[in-house]
């Protein structure tokens, strides 16, 4: 149960096979199709939430159009990137925790 990406062979829209694209999310590999957003990749792989709110409630995609900021992730050490707005590129390192900040000396 949960979200899923429709396999190309079953898709009435007949999308081109753009080839696989793999990113790592908290160290684990997640594969989708070239041209997908980070959120699309995560949901397509069955993840429904990946962040927690201030009081620890789970958050994933809510608005899907960049308005709600529920889906924030860290991409290649850049925090607070909206996963639904950012297209994934091969080898992106995604973390669901913000990067640890170095305290100034």
């Amino acid at each position: 149960m949960g979200p899923q990406r429709l396999p190309v062979a079953q898709d009435p829209v007949a999308p081109r096979d753009s080839g696989p694209l793999t990113i790592t999310v908290d160290g684990a590999q997640v594969t989708g199709q070239v041209g997908q957003t980070v959120a699309g990749l995560l949901l397509g792989a069955g993840h429904v939430s990946w962040r927690t709110s201030r009081t620890g409630r789970p958050r994933g995609v809510f608005c899907g159009i960049g308005v709600c900021f529920d889906c924030l992730v860290t991409v290649n050490d850049i925090p607070d990137v909206r996963a639904c707005q950012r297209r994934a590129t091969e080898g992106d390192v995604v973390s669901t925790e913000p990067p640890t900040r170095e305290t100034p000396a």
Binding site: R5, L6, P15, G40, V61, I65
Partner: peptide, 25 residues
């Protein structure tokens, strides 16, 4: 605010832009 509750617009964007269905039922 539970995961799995989406705006209808999110479902639309993910279907049209990603070919991802937000759920099965």
């Amino acid at each position: 605010d539970l995961p799995g509750v989406f705006t209808a617009g999110a479902a639309q964007a993910l279907a049209k832009g990603e070919r991802v269905a937000v759920g099965r039922r």
